[in-house]
C-alpha cells in the first residue's frame, strides 16, 4: 500500500529529515543528561553541593530549550517532510479513514 520513498532527496528535504531525526533524538539526550545526578556521590564526604547541582540541572534545562527552539524554527513546515514519503491521500473518502467517536447522546 505505502509507496517506497525515493532513495535520493533534494538537499533541502534531506536537511529537513535530519532535523526531524535530531528532534526525535533530543528527548533521549535530555533523559541521559538528567539521569547524570543519579551517579553523584551522596553522604558526608564528597557530596555535591546544592548550588553546583542547581547550576548543572538548570544548565541542561536551558541547553535543551535552546536546541528545541532552534530546531522548531527550522522545522517550520514539518508536514511537507512526510508528504514526500507518502502516497497522496485517496480522494474518495473511504470508510476507514475517519469516523467520529460516540458521544453519549449526540445522535
Amino acid at each position: 500500500m505505502r509507496k517506497a520513498s525515493p532513495l535520493f532527496l533534494e538537499r533541502r528535504s534531506y536537511r529537513l529529515r535530519r532535523l526531524v531525526d535530531a528532534a526525535r533524538l533530543l528527548p533521549f539526550l535530555g533523559a541521559l543528561l538528567f539521569a547524570v545526578p543519579m551517579l553523584w556521590p551522596q553522604g558526608e564526604d564528597g557530596a555535591i553541593l546544592s548550588s553546583n547541582a542547581i547550576f548543572y540541572i538548570f544548565g541542561v534545562w536551558v541547553l535543551l530549550v535552546v536546541v528545541t527552539l532552534v530546531l522548531s524554527l527550522f522545522l517550520e513546515d514539518t508536514t511537507n517532510v512526510e508528504r514526500e514519503a507518502q502516497p497522496p491521500v485517496s480522494p474518495v473518502p473511504t470508510l476507514d479513514t475517519q469516523e467520529p467517536p460516540s458521544h453519549g447522546g449526540e445522535a
Binding site: 551522596q42 557530596a47 555535591i48 553541593l49 546544592s50 548550588s51
Partner: peptide
C-alpha cells in the same frame, strides 16, 4: 543566596 543554600539543611545533593 547560593552560599546560604549550600549552608542549609538541603545544602547537599540527596536522592
Amino acid at each position: 543566596t547560593l552560599e546560604r543554600i549550600d549552608a542549609s539543611p538541603i545544602g547537599q545533593w540527596q536522592s
